[in-house]
């Protein structure tokens, strides 16, 4: 079910990574049932590294990202380990977790309109985490907020404006400024550009890319858009049904996907000028598993993608699938990979 043992053996020799997620499992409880959303996810992230997490709705990608900082409702059940600088955030005390949020790791949510407080100026909102965490005076915090606004390409004189006075793209920039407020080492960006237009999306991504390169912040970026992620992030994890289907360097993953799901997802985003996709939209028949189906999957063997897989074999229904090495720095959860490597 998981690849914990295989994927972590090599890392123990090197110095510990900034973020080390081990066998993370998240279940929602509702209506007397337990529905698994994340079913055993393991990965590591170093300082300054960028990891993109791709997947469809219901793949568990957002749940996974939010559970790292325990941002989910208390009724959810989270197991596994989230080691941030060696400290397990899943068992840390609330006070300690509050200190980590903002100052060590921060989140850029999708939908900046609902994430910003409509009745307070953006200056106040950017200053709040600075005052709380950096223990500086009002004046210094204000200066830092002005600096931050400037760094995301907005004039600092607009600190006194309210969220509704900004456009969608500008609000998303403000969210990024807030996430940077306490100079964190890690930013988790959950669909940061989903609601934005193409041009505004390009502006925001460009900004995020520049900031990451300059400051060496680690980034986990969640998106449904594989093509955006592959250009923003060095490494890519593709999630399906609460598990990582394939993980590895972005370029190789897109150029030579080893998992059939990665292949299908890649084809769903056509490249303009590619004759293969002209008048030939590519999709994948069927739908991702529904929550009850997910619950059933967790209790049985076999690959979760098998019902939709164009390359499925008999063994895919009966064998347990886990992440197997599929190339340098790459892993894929597919029996075909095992077959190809002769293992």
């Amino acid at each position: 079910m998981t690849a914990t043992d295989q994927s972590h053996a090599p890392e123990d020799r090197a110095s510990a990574p900034m973020l080390d997620v081990r066998d993370l499992r998240v279940s929602y409880r509702g209506g007397g049932r337990t529905v698994p959303a994340v079913r055993g996810v393991s990965f590591t992230l170093d300082r300054g590294q960028t990891l993109g997490v791709a997947g469809e709705s219901g793949s568990g990608k957002s749940t996974m990202a939010l559970s790292l900082l325990r941002l989910l409702p208390s009724s959810t059940q989270v197991t596994g380990q989230v080691l941030f600088e060696g400290e397990d955030l899943l068992t840390a005390k609330w006070a300690r977790l509050r200190a980590v949020r903002w100052s060590a790791a921060s989140v850029v949510f999708q939908g900046a309109m609902s994430a910003l407080n409509p009745v307070r100026t953006i200056g106040e909102q950017i200053c709040e985490p600075i005052l709380l965490h950096d223990k500086v005076g009002q004046k210094k915090a204000r200066a830092r907020a002005a600096e931050l606004l400037d760094s995301v390409g907005l004039p600092s004189r607009r600190l006194g404006s309210y969220p509704h006075e900004f456009s969608g793209g500008q609000r998303q920039r403000i969210m990024i400024a807030m996430a940077l407020a306490c100079r964190p080492d890690l930013i988790i960006a959950d669909e940061p550009t989903t609601a934005l237009d193409v041009m505004v999306q390009a502006q925001v991504l460009n900004l995020l890319g520049d900031l990451v390169r300059e400051s060496g912040i680690g980034v986990i970026m969640i998106s449904h858009d594989l093509s955006v992620l592959s250009h923003m992030c060095e490494r890519l994890a593709v999630m399906y049904a609460g598990q990582i289907a394939e993980i590895g360097p972005s370029k190789q993953l897109i150029a030579e996907p080893r998992h059939p799901y990665t292949r299908a997802l890649g084809r769903a985003f056509p490249t303009i000028g590619d004759p293969a996709s002209r008048l030939a939209p590519a999709g994948l028949p069927g739908d991702p598993p529904t929550p009850p189906e997910l619950a059933r999957l967790s209790e049985s063997r076999g690959c979760a993608f098998e019902p939709r897989c164009p390359e499925a074999m008999d063994a895919c229904r009966t064998e347990t699938v886990e992440l197997w090495p599929s190339g340098p720095g790459r892993e894929a959860a597919c029996l075909r990979v095992l077959e190809g490597s002769g293992a």
Binding site: D225, L226, L265, A268, P281, G283, L284, P288
Partner: peptide, 14 residues
């Protein structure tokens, strides 16, 4: 719609 479903609906229109 999701990426994999998107292609199926576009196919339908074609």
């Amino acid at each position: 719609l999701d990426a994999s479903v998107r292609g199926e609906i576009l196919k339908l229109i074609l």
